[in-house]
């Protein structure tokens, strides 16, 4: 699971959960995969992200180094910044671990990099 996915993912499909966001990450295995750098894509995606959630997620898995906690106004002209954002959003991947719903405490396992968001019949809204 890449952190761009984590930034979008919620547990709101659980019965009784309102926003289910952000999911807490517990990572037991992390890998870094090189991905082609596309500054336009990163610039375009940043306004859609919850940056604070991204920063905290990166920090919680030990990958926040050099990543600013807030975004500057002219971020799209700052190539170094975009590269760091690129790395954290697309290259760092949680391979094994689990996500925790902030409201219900329900855990969702991550195996081989894939979060399992399947619900039991009783959990479906």
């Amino acid at each position: 699971m890449k952190l761009i996915t984590h930034n979008m993912l919620t547990s709101k499909c659980l019965k009784g959960v309102l926003t289910g966001y952000p999911l807490a990450i517990k990572a037991t295995n992390i890998k870094v995969n090189e991905v082609d750098f596309n500054p336009d894509f990163i610039s375009r995606i940043i306004p859609k992200l919850d940056w604070e959630v991204l920063w905290k997620a990166a920090d919680s898995i030990g990958h926040s180094e050099g990543l600013p906690q807030t975004i500057e106004r002219n971020y799209d002209e700052d190539k170094e910044f975009l590269k760091k954002a690129h790395r954290v959003l697309l290259e760092v991947e949680v391979e094994e671990g689990y996500l925790t719903c902030p409201e219900s405490g329900r855990q969702f396992p991550i195996t081989k990099g894939i979060p399992n968001m399947l619900l039991t019949e009783a959990e479906v809204q």
């Binding site: 979008m8 993912l9 919620t10 499909c13 894939i114 619900l119």
Partner: peptide, 18 residues
């Protein structure tokens, strides 16, 4: 990036993601 989920249970992403 991949997510294991049942679309019939709802799409588990926050508003305005895609």
């Amino acid at each position: 990036d991949l997510v294991l989920a049942d679309m019939g249970e709802g799409v588990p992403f926050k508003a305005g993601s895609f």
